[in-house]
Simulated scan of single mutants.
Amino acid sequence: MDAPQALWRLRLGSAFRTVLACTIVGCTTLYGPEHVRSLLTFPAFSYVTSVLIVSDATLGDALRGCWHVFCASIQVMLPSVLALWIIGPTRFSNVGLAAMAVALCSFLIALPGSTHLMAKRIAFGQTVIVYVGTVIQGDDTDVLMHPIHVASSCALGALASVLAMLFPYPHLAYREASISKS
C-alpha cells in the first residue's frame, strides 16, 4: 500500500469513528432514558467534546481524553458553584459581572502549568457555557444543577468517544497484527 492510500485510509477511519461518536451522542440525547436526558441539557457541547477527543485518536488517547474531561469538570465545577452560590444567579443579569466571572475562572484554569492543553480547552468551554447559561436563564438557574448539567453533557461526549474507539471496524487488531507478520 502506498503512502497516500494509507493516509487516506487513516483519515477515513478517523472520520468513521467521529461519526460513530456523534451518532452515540445524538441517540443518547434523543432516545435515552428520561432521567439521563434531563441531565444532558447541552448536547452541542457533547458533540464538541467527542470531536475534540476522537479525532485521530487511539483507545488510549480516548481514555486520556476522559481523564481530561474529568479534570476540566473539577476545575470548572468548584469555582462556578461557589461563584453562583456567593453572588447569586439573579445578579448575573449584568453581562459585565458574567464577563468578569468568566475572565477570573479562565485565569484560574490557565494558571496551572501542569494541566494538559486538552483539559484547558474543555474547561474554557465549560466555563463559558456555565456563565452564559446563567445570564440567559437568570433567576431560574439552579446553583448546583446547572454546572452539573454542563459537566454531564461533556462526560457524554467523552463516553461516546471511548465507545466509538471500542468499535472494532475499520481497525481490527487481529487484522493489523497479521498484516505486520507478513
Rank of each mutant, 00 (worst) to 15 (best):
L159A: 08
L78P: 09
L111C: 06
F107H: 09
L7G: 01
Q5T: 11
G65P: 05
A155L: 09
G138W: 02
A98S: 12
M165F: 12
A164M: 06
Y131R: 09
A151K: 00
R91H: 12
S152N: 02
F124I: 08
A15P: 10
Y174G: 12
S161I: 03
R91L: 07
S180A: 15
F124A: 11
Q75F: 04
T23K: 05
F70P: 02
L117A: 12
L7N: 00
P89G: 14
A110F: 11
V76M: 13
D56F: 14
L144P: 03
G157C: 02
F107R: 09
D142V: 04
Y169Q: 15
L144F: 12
W85K: 15
L163I: 08
A119E: 08
V25C: 05
F16M: 14
V143R: 11
I148P: 01
R37E: 03
L166R: 13
E176A: 13
F42C: 05
F45R: 03
L82N: 11
A44V: 08
H68Q: 13
A83N: 07
L144M: 10
R11S: 08
C22V: 11
F70V: 11
Y174W: 14
D2E: 05
T115V: 14
W8H: 08
T90E: 15
W67K: 11
T58F: 00
A123W: 00
L144V: 12
I87A: 11
H68L: 07
S46R: 00
D142A: 04
Y174A: 15
P112I: 06
F16T: 12
V150C: 07
Q137Y: 12
M165Q: 15
T41G: 06
S14H: 02
A15S: 15
F107Y: 15
H116Y: 14
G13C: 05
L20H: 03
W67Y: 04
A83F: 15
A3S: 04
I87Y: 06
G65M: 07
C22H: 10
Y131K: 12
A62C: 12
F42V: 08
A21D: 04
L84I: 12
L163D: 14
T134C: 08
Y169E: 14
T127F: 01
A158L: 03
V19L: 14
T90H: 14
R9Y: 03
H116P: 10
S38Q: 04
L63E: 02
F92L: 12
L159E: 00
R91C: 05
G113Q: 10
L78I: 14
A158Y: 01
F70E: 04
M118W: 13
V132L: 11
L12V: 06
L7I: 00
H68K: 10
P33A: 03
G32A: 03
T58K: 03
T29S: 06
S180C: 09
L97K: 07
L163H: 09
A155F: 06
S106N: 07
P170Y: 05
T127C: 10
V51W: 02
L82E: 13
S114M: 01
S55I: 09
F92D: 11
Y174T: 15
A110D: 09
T58N: 03
G113E: 11
V135I: 09
C66A: 01
M118L: 15
A21I: 00
A57M: 06
R64E: 04
L108Y: 09
S80Q: 10
